[in-house]
Design a protein around this nucleic acid. Structure first.
Lengths: 115, 115
DNA sequence: CTAGGACTTGAACTAATGGTGAAGTCAATG
DNA sequence: CATTGACTTCACCATTAGTTCAAGTCCTAG
């Protein structure tokens, strides 16, 4: 039973209202509707958005974040957040490894550029 | 005195002809023109493009790569490529540090998500 | 000298990304 | 019961990195 409005979630998560609606359209968060068709969010919505913003810094797209958050059940427990954290961490580490691989390719400058 | 056509640079660098023209428009490479207005590239053009592609993997945009390559003189020497390499490496390392910072933020899961 | 493959331009198009804005509707309060 | 702020949808915007198209021009090998 959601109780939070778009504006409240926006304030709690630090993003704009239009972003909150955008994230709902993209499936990062879900909302119940009032009789007057307004969105009402659960307490974990702002939380999901905060995680999403960190995930964006890691370089995940909104689509990838949707998939990541899809693994999170409604009314998530500590262990659920923990496992999300682990998956995000793993992804960040994978991207760091990719950058190191690019660095190695740069290092082999001769292969990059025979003059 | 450029001698390479668009097609030759494309083959040597592994990108399409339209991409070669695109990179010229964006200032990543420069071309002389024949009497008949065709592009003729110097030997370092394919080289620049290979560097550009690695830079893209590092996450630089075409605009950023233009700025990076702007530091490379015409007829670049080994030391010029070396310094380019160093700047690109520094940029990659900066991005790796950003990812580590994001990882740290994830680590502070409690701050991310008070439930 | 001529055939045809490679080249020229500029504009339109693609496709993804991450939202924002306008016009109109709802709801809580004084 | 009217105001006002929050809400609604959907179309649109801007950026990024090219690709594609058409109509025409160049250049090189035979």
């Amino acid at each position: 039973m959601g109780t939070l409005t778009v504006g409240e979630v926006a304030r709690e998560s630090g993003v704009s209202g239009s972003a909150v609606r955008f994230y709902e359209r993209q499936g990062l968060i879900t909302a119940a509707r009032t009789g007057g068709n307004q969105r009402r969010f659960d307490a974990d919505a702002a939380c999901r958005i905060r995680v999403a913003r960190v995930a964006q810094r890691v370089g995940l797209t909104v689509n990838e974040i949707r998939d990541l958050l899809a693994a999170l059940p409604p009314d998530p427990q500590l262990a659920d957040w923990q496992s999300l954290h682990d998956r995000l961490t793993a992804e960040a580490e994978r991207r760091i490894r990719d950058l190191h691989a690019a660095l190695d390719d740069i290092g082999s400058g001769r292969r990059l550029c025979e003059l």
